[in-house]
């Protein structure tokens, strides 16, 4: 589903956001603390803080439909993945090193843009016990980099 380039991209120092809708079509979203790629790109696991995501996780349990964006601040390169089979899974403490590495990559990405390091680290401060993993199979993938190709399906998707 995802080529090796996009697999590497979504695991780099990108900003991650995950959304799901409630029965009234009101979406809720949370900042992703990192992600991992499963089954060679057929499935993606996104880590979110439970304390920040009660509504999001409830929406996912109800509908299974998610939108997930990854954007690199320095280049504006942005990818959106969609899934219809999302599940909320317990966080595997073995994945905490991914969360820590992602925070470090993101800090390295945005410090040159002038964001205060303390603020960025605060955004990514979390404890393993507070995390959940949302796993889904991307069924659609779009480029959302601003420009004429925004909204087009990624090559190799579908």
């Amino acid at each position: 589903m995802l080529d090796s380039d996009n697999i590497a991209f979504i695991q780099s120092g990108v900003s991650i956001s995950l959304a799901a809708c409630g029965p009234d079509r009101l979406a809720s979203m949370s900042r992703g603390m990192g992600c991992k790629v499963l089954d060679g790109g057929r499935r993606v696991g996104v880590f979110v803080k439970r304390s920040q995501s009660a509504e999001l996780l409830e929406n996912i349990r109800r509908s299974g439909k998610v939108a997930n964006v990854f954007s690199l601040p320095s280049s504006n390169r942005t990818v959106q993945l969609k899934g219809v089979d999302a599940q909320v899974q317990p966080f595997d403490p073995a994945d905490f090193s991914i969360v820590e590495a992602h925070a470090a990559d993101f800090v390295a990405e945005v410090l040159p843009l002038g964001l205060p390091e303390e603020v960025v680290r605060t955004l990514f401060a979390c404890a393993a016990e507070d995390l959940a993993t949302v796993v889904y199979s991307p069924c659609a993938a779009f480029s959302q980099t601003p420009g004429p190709k925004a909204g087009e399906p990624l090559g190799g998707a579908r």
Partner: peptide, 20 residues
């Protein structure tokens, strides 16, 4: 927009969409 905001919407079928 110093830290860009995110916007989430939903289509008629309940599929969410995210953008910066």
């Amino acid at each position: 927009g110093i830290i860009p905001g995110h916007i989430a919407t939903c289509d008629a079928e309940g599929m969410p969409n995210l953008a910066y």
